[in-house]
């Protein structure tokens, strides 16, 4: 009996195996194995592992000098090894086939159907153009309505603050540490940064550059008579071109051949003539540097004698409308 069962199983098994499916047709062409390339890939994966392990090691190793550099090196090399392994796999271990495919086609029938769909859907409208215009109008209005809250982002129509500066007659000039400038300590051949006393400094109307020339060298316009007591001149430190701080002072070491003393902005090299009231000598700035009239009080301290000769900061459409306000 046992034998019989065994025989049946065997026969059934054979019978079942007989209609054996053929091996499916290959989708990817075959190629010869390449053990050397495999070895290289193994080596690269090994190296990547070592480099990757080095990353946490360097990370926790406090005493190591140049930790950033070693971290970058370890991580970079680990990634580079994996990259190399991928490329070896691509070039040597997998089959590189050349396939062809049709470029995409256009679908004129579908295009026409879409057009027809839209057209026919609108059949029932009698005043199509009017409806479209009304709809577009409503859409535009709604769009504007939805943009309205954006006006809260900033004082969009409030231009007067652009003319405001903290300077007015009598305000003392102080240095970065808050010390009052004395007229006598302003020397020729260098420049000083000054701020208004007791005022917010982080605004474009605040900072000044103060320089001293020989009174005989001054060529200020007549209207600015007395603005530079003892040859001391004060200008806004903010360039009228693009709003950078004017951080360079060009002082000729040999006046007969070298260019005029000038204030220079390091951003785009707008160059302003200090002797004649801040006019533009070179560079892109389109209007002169605003000058601040100075006076020396009886104690010898430098004070503003008024506000600037023009609006401070980079130019805008209203910059010439009126002067700065205190």
């Amino acid at each position: 009996m046992r034998w019989l069962v065994a025989l049946v199983v065997l026969v059934l098994g054979r019978m079942r195996r007989r209609p054996r499916l053929e091996e499916p047709e290959r989708l990817v062409p075959t190629g010869a194995p390449d053990r050397r390339a495999e070895n290289i890939v193994l080596l690269l994966f090994g190296a990547a592992t070592v480099c990757a392990i080095a990353v946490p090691v360097v990370y926790v190793w406090d005493a190591i000098p140049n930790q950033t550099q070693f971290l970058g090196l370890a991580l970079g090399l680990a990634l580079a090894c994996i990259s190399a392994a991928c490329i070896v796999i691509a070039k040597r271990l997998v089959v590189t086939e050349e396939l062809e495919e049709e470029y995409g086609l256009t679908h004129p029938d579908e295009e026409e159907a879409v057009e027809q769909l839209v057209d026919e859907s609108g059949d029932r409208f009698t005043r199509k153009r009017l409806l479209v215009v009304a709809g577009a109008g409503a859409g535009t209005a709604l769009g504007a309505a939805m943009l309205t809250p954006a006006a809260s982002l900033g004082p969009v129509f409030e231009m007067s603050s652009l003319y405001k500066t903290p300077w007015r007659r009598g305000v003392r000039l102080v240095d970065e540490a808050g010390r009052v400038f004395l007229a006598d300590e302003i020397e020729e051949g260098t420049f000083y940064t000054a701020y208004p006393e007791h005022a917010q400094r982080e605004q474009m109307g605040a900072p000044l550059v103060v320089v001293r020339l020989k009174p005989a060298e001054l060529r200020l316009p007549d209207a600015r008579y007395g603005w530079a007591p003892g040859g001391i001149l004060a200008y806004s430190k903010i360039c009228t071109h693009a709003g950078c701080a004017i951080a360079l002072y060009r002082k000729p070491t040999f006046a007969p051949v070298e260019p005029k003393p000038a204030l220079v902005c390091p951003c785009h090299y707008s160059t302003f003539d200090v002797a004649d009231g801040g006019s533009v000598l070179f560079g892109p700035a389109g209007r002169p540097l605003p000058q601040l009239p100075l006076l020396v009080d009886p104690a010898g301290q430098l004070r503003a004698a008024g506000n600037f000769s023009g609006a401070v900061g980079p130019s805008w459409w209203g910059v010439r409308r009126h002067g700065p306000r205190s």
């Binding site: 954006a150 006006a151 982002l153 900033g154 004082p155 969009v156 129509f157 409030e158 231009m159 603050s161 652009l162 405001k164 982080e202 605004q203 474009m204 709003g243 900061g313 980079p314 805008w316 459409w317 209203g318």
Partner: peptide, 14 residues
């Protein structure tokens, strides 16, 4: 321009 700048920066620079 000035209006847009006031809007974006919420007031005169900075």
């Amino acid at each position: 321009g000035a209006n847009l700048a006031q809007l974006v920066w919420n007031g005169p620079f900075p």
